[in-house]
Simulated assay, not measured.
Amino acid sequence: MGYGGVRMTTESLASTVTLNNGVKMPRLGLGVWKTDNASAAKSVSAAIQAGYRLIDTAKQYGNETGVGAGILEGLEKTGLNRKDLFVTTKVFNGDQGYESTLAAINGSLERLGLTYLDLYLVHWPVDGKFVDTWKALEELYYAGKVRAIGISNFDVERTQELLEYANVTPVINQMEFNPLNQEADVLAFAKLTGTVLEAWSPLGGGAALNNETIQTIAQRHGKSAAQVIIRWDWQRGVVAIPKSSHIERIKENADIFDFSLSAEEMQAINELDEAKRDLWYSDFAWHNADGHGFKDSVDTWPDSPENYAD
């Protein structure tokens, strides 16, 4: 199966997509948004032991420390090496800008207990900042501190603006993507540029999981609604990072390789698109249309530090 001219391997949890810079990235991974440090550590360790190799976090999530602990435990219990994993984190909105981004990566690496990142993303296109942030990511990429760089939550307009100044094309655009919000324009533009779309919130919450069409398809295959949605992502060529704090659910989410969706089933899910984002750019306090000033804070879950500054 191809994605925008990108080559893909055979189907298993170890399957990868070859990004536009030649780096291989797992096609299915674990997300940890809205997870505290203790839960993140357990989830990440369990996921690695279950065969996951892609782990996605962000400074804004307030759980990089927990993710790092989970990575360490997972590697110890499986006998794997750091190079066997693909770890993503993101530039915090409050750190965006050229010099501040160059400095910010050190805090993330320290919290994660790592010496390099596999993928570093611009978390949101902060007004007046994201081009300079991208320039810093390019420098980190050239210096070998990150293996690949990409963007997150960039619509077509802002992606086009970034590309006017970029020397490196983003390998990934991570977007809210699920059956009810399929980002048709972003996906089409990503294919044109050789950028892979990665889905955050791929399951779409209760509205998608309880959708009658998806439930009917799930019953037909003897699978859960979540498994059908993740399989749909897979067949669409979208990298997915479903979040779960439950070990059995983490395992279940990866059990999608003993069935496939027919063309008719794929089309039926495609037709569920409402093109309605639950969370978008204009919702954030730091968004300012004239490009002057922004504010933001790290998410604080029960065990997250109140002051998460580098």
Rank of each mutant, 00 (worst) to 15 (best):
E176R: 05
R147C: 06
K59S: 12
T18G: 06
F189Q: 11
H221M: 05
L80N: 08
T159K: 04
E138A: 07
L30H: 02
K243V: 01
I256W: 09
A263M: 09
S152Y: 01
V168E: 15
T101I: 03
G97E: 06
D296N: 10
A263T: 13
V156W: 04
R111Q: 11
A148S: 15
R82G: 04
N210I: 07
R7T: 12
A240N: 13
V196Q: 12
A225V: 03
T78R: 10
V44H: 07
A268I: 12
E73W: 08
P302T: 06
G5F: 05
V17H: 03
D132K: 14
L119D: 09
D95V: 01
W124Y: 13
K90Y: 07
N93L: 07
A268Y: 10
S224F: 03
A40K: 02
H123T: 05
R249V: 03
L13N: 15
Y3L: 02
G237C: 03
L192T: 15
Q182I: 06
E176F: 01
H123Y: 08
E212A: 14
A207C: 10
A285G: 14
D36F: 01
V32Q: 00
N253S: 08
Y61H: 04
F130M: 00
G22I: 07
A208P: 01
V171C: 15
Y281T: 12
S43D: 04
L187S: 14
F189Y: 15
L85R: 11
G66F: 03
E157N: 09
G194R: 01
N63C: 04
L197Q: 13
L112F: 03
N37A: 05
A58H: 00
E64P: 09
I247G: 05
T65G: 10
R158I: 10
I241G: 00
Y116H: 15
L121T: 04
E157T: 12
R277T: 11
P179M: 09
A143L: 09
T115R: 10
V171A: 15
A143D: 09
N20W: 12
R277E: 14
L19F: 04
G113M: 11
N307V: 09
W134A: 04
H221L: 09
P170G: 08
F92Q: 12
D95W: 09
A225R: 02
V126D: 08
V44A: 09
L102H: 06
L121C: 08
G31K: 07
E64H: 12
A289Y: 11
A14G: 12
L279R: 10
A46E: 01
W33Q: 04
T101P: 02
A199D: 12
D299K: 11
